[in-house]
Amino acid sequence: MAALIELSSILIPLLLFTLLATATPGPNNTLLTLSGSRFGYRQTLPFLFGIRAGITGLFILMASGIGGILNQNPHWYLYLKLLGAAYLVYLAVKMAFSKGHKQQNSPANLIGFRQGALLQFINPKSMMMVLSCITAFSLPGELYLLSVIQACLIFNLVGLMSNSAWTVFGSLISRFLATELARQRFNRMLAILTLVAVALLFI
């Protein structure tokens, strides 16, 4: 009973942190909006679920001690940031300049489950969010594992809703883009926002 009370005491702050972390613009949400506008909600679901799977993998790694190693070796983290930034730029450019109408887009241009999952391991924002979440909302001693599991579940649940909202937004707004030129401009605007989000990670 005492354990449940202690876990529940951090639940509201955890929910607020997770909402701010997952609902705000960032590389994941911008790419989901871009994918939703190009391919629609259903076809973007593998990418969305890949993101959540990757976040879960990050929780496992960070909670097992990788986060502490990165803190002790900041140059490793810098290398990961550079690698992640390069890959995010590649994905943004790939999707922004893919040709053809929404219904005719090639599956080759679609970001899938595996890409979405692997992206999280080199996505600087995802790594920072997960490490911050574990640091702030894990409890010492016997409650450490339970508190990390709670943080992971809440983070993924709220993140799933936030990611879905951004994907639906992209899918809905594409209906108002009557011409291919308008669609391309919208996609390129989102690509630019992705590049801005990446740049902000280095400030």
Rank of each mutant, 00 (worst) to 15 (best):
Arg114Asp: 10
Gln72Val: 08
Gly112Ala: 10
Gly159Ser: 01
Ser37Trp: 01
Thr22Val: 09
Leu193Ser: 12
Met189Val: 15
Lys102Pro: 07
Glu6Gly: 00
Tyr79Arg: 01
Ser171Phe: 07
Arg183Leu: 11
Gly67Met: 10
Leu118Glu: 05
Gly54Tyr: 07
Gly26Cys: 07
Ser35Lys: 03
Leu7His: 08
Thr24Leu: 14
Arg175Pro: 00
Ser9Trp: 14
Arg185Leu: 11
Ala108Trp: 12
Ala151Arg: 02
Leu143Ile: 07
Ser37Asp: 05
Ser106Asn: 14
Arg185Phe: 10
Ala136Ser: 12
Gly100Val: 07
Ile111Glu: 01
Ala85Arg: 06
Asn71Gly: 09
Gly65Val: 09
Thr33Leu: 11
Leu145Phe: 14
Val168His: 04
Leu20Gln: 02
Leu45His: 09
Leu58Met: 09
Ser9Ile: 13
Gln115Trp: 10
Ala85Met: 12
Gly26Val: 11
Gln104Cys: 08
Met95Ile: 15
Ile149Ser: 01
Arg42Asn: 12
Phe97Trp: 15
Ile203Trp: 10
Ala3Tyr: 09
Phe17Lys: 01
Thr194Ala: 06
Ala53Val: 11
Gln43Val: 14
Phe59Leu: 06
Cys133Ala: 13
Lys125Gly: 01
Thr56Lys: 00
Val198Met: 00
Val158Phe: 07
Ala178Lys: 09
Met1Val: 14
Leu200Glu: 09
Ala21Ser: 11
Ile111Leu: 14
Ile134Phe: 04
Ile66Leu: 15
Phe97Arg: 13
Gln103Pro: 01
Leu119Arg: 00
Leu45Lys: 05
Leu19Tyr: 09
Lys125Ala: 02
Ala151Lys: 02
Gly26Trp: 07
Asn71Leu: 15
Phe121Lys: 02
Gln72Lys: 13
Gln184Ile: 01
Leu190Glu: 04
Thr179Glu: 13
Ala117His: 00
Leu157His: 12
Gly68Asp: 03
Arg38Glu: 07
Ala191Glu: 02
Ile60Trp: 13
Gly50Thr: 06
Ser8Asn: 10
Ile192Val: 15
Ala86Trp: 06
Tyr144Trp: 08
Ser174Arg: 03
Leu181Ile: 12
Met127Leu: 15
Arg183Asn: 10
Lys99Val: 10
Ile111Asn: 03
Phe17Ile: 06
Gly65Ala: 01
Leu7Tyr: 08
Thr24Gln: 08
Ser132Cys: 02
Met62His: 03
Leu160Arg: 00
Thr179His: 11
Asn28Ser: 15
Gln115Phe: 11
Met189Asp: 05
Leu20His: 01
Val89Ser: 02
Leu31Ala: 09
Thr56Gly: 07
Asn156Met: 12
Ser164Trp: 05
Ile203Thr: 03
Lys99Tyr: 05
Tyr90Lys: 04
Arg38Pro: 12
Leu143Ser: 09
